[in-house]
Amino acid sequence: MKLLRCPVNGARPVSEFVYGGEVREMPGDACTDAEWADYVFNRSGIPGVKIEWWYHVASGTWFLAKRDVAADHVLQTWLPGEEVPE
C-alpha cells in the first residue's frame, strides 16, 4: 500500500485520500469566454513535477502536494497558507 503524508495526520495509506487535481490559477471576471473555457477544460497534460490538491477523507483535511506524476513520487506536502517546505 502506498503511503501519503497528510500535513496534519502524518503518513496514511493512499486509499484514505482523494485527489483534487492540479492547482490552477482562476482567471479574473474580465476574462473572455475562450479564456474561461481554457481554465475550465484544458489541462497541462505533460508529465513533470506538479502541485496538486489532495484531501484526507478521514479527517477532512485539504492540503497541497508536490508530486512527480511520471514516477508517482510525492516530494512535499503542506497546508494551504503555509510556507512551502524546502
Partner: peptide, 17 residues
Amino acid sequence: FTPRVTHMVGIRTPIYV
C-alpha cells in the same frame, strides 16, 4: 502520449492521463 505531442505544436487540450 497525446499531451506530450500536442505540447510540441503548442495546442492545449482537456486530455488528462
